[in-house]
Design a protein around this nucleic acid. Sequence first.
DNA 1: TAGATTGTTAATCGATTAACAATC
DNA 2: TAGATTGTTAATCGATTAACAATC
Lengths: 214, 214
Amino acid sequence: MNYRMNKQVSITVIRRIPKYYRHLTELLEKGVNRISSQELSNLIGFTASQIRQDLNNFGGFGQQGYGYNVEELRDELGKILGLDREYNAVISGAGNLGHAISNYKGFKEAGFNIVGVFDKDPENPRHSNIEKLDVKPIEELESFIKKHNVEIGIITISKKYAQEIADIYVKAGIKGIWNFAPVDLKLPKNVKLEDVRLSESLYTLTYFIQETVE
Amino acid sequence: MNYRMNKQVSITVIRRIPKYYRHLTELLEKGVNRISSQELSNLIGFTASQIRQDLNNFGGFGQQGYGYNVEELRDELGKILGLDREYNAVISGAGNLGHAISNYKGFKEAGFNIVGVFDKDPENPRHSNIEKLDVKPIEELESFIKKHNVEIGIITISKKYAQEIADIYVKAGIKGIWNFAPVDLKLPKNVKLEDVRLSESLYTLTYFIQETVE
DNA sequence: TAGATTGTTAATCGATTAACAATC
DNA sequence: TAGATTGTTAATCGATTAACAATC
């Protein structure tokens, strides 16, 4: 571990790290190898001061008079986010959303392997095979997770079954759940939860749309 | 307009409103017709104090000694979010994610009508028809928006074409863009933008997964 | 060395929580 | 009326910005 990690870093800061990571990755692809907090600020839109504060939660990645080395900083942030290794993941819910995540190349490239897709009704033709993965019945989920060293459980199944799936994930010893169902899952605190709230995002948009009109 | 609206309400508050809205909708379905800030607190997890502060940004929806009327509060928050009317929306990008959004019943029920789906390559069998909607070529997008009173443009197309689509949306007079592509769209400020950053969400999860291990 | 830019402390700003008077 | 619970002000806490000494 290369970076410093004293006091608990606030969730507000953590949620900005992936944004830095994405921009640094793009800079790297463009062949930029050095950047100052001010230049990053122009790019991302956070203040230079905030950027320096954020990064200093984890250590002094920069160099006075020079700035930051793009590749080094990107790699360090990648390590902080845990992106320096691969993860096996399963999806429960073989609808369109499950398909979308399973087929998305970007996740594979980032080191996320979708090793299994499960559904209540695997024979439904609408849930037909995803790429080269068979859709398996939920009954096999728990043993599959244990056998294949699965750390991440994705929930794209309907709201109705989400907690049931989460319970299986927990029982099988999964480490984190990425949940797309609009329910508040109850989990033991050693299992991490990240919710994607699509409706909430959409409703925020309509709020601002009408704001203009008034 | 029934609710008060003085000073600009902060984005932090706004992003909590859909959460209240969802819980109140569920309470209503369960037949609960009255709730106190303390009971809401137990349900949602925000403090009772914060709930009262949040709601009072928009007006006094409660009654001392009684609490809040569930249906009335839900409806008021719905109005605040602009959910008291329908919206026509189009999707650009007929991949799995486009399909997922287009087929999701919840959006239809909430008043969002997907009136058109567009793609660079509408003949691609993988982009085959979505429910009963033909997938149309991008060339028809601008005129379609103008003709069908479309207010919301959804972007589920690849990163590469996202800005191009956004430009067409803007030119056609769309009011808001719901963007799933991992790019920073450049838009005039009268067009509202809401980004869904799936990767950023996933990377936050891996951060917390490894946190436990260390 | 001189110039640039970080790392970090201090100041400010905003958001959350606590407390309680108002009132149903 | 007495009890409950809001609406709202004041206190606290945390996050952002400003400023500048350290240093490459």
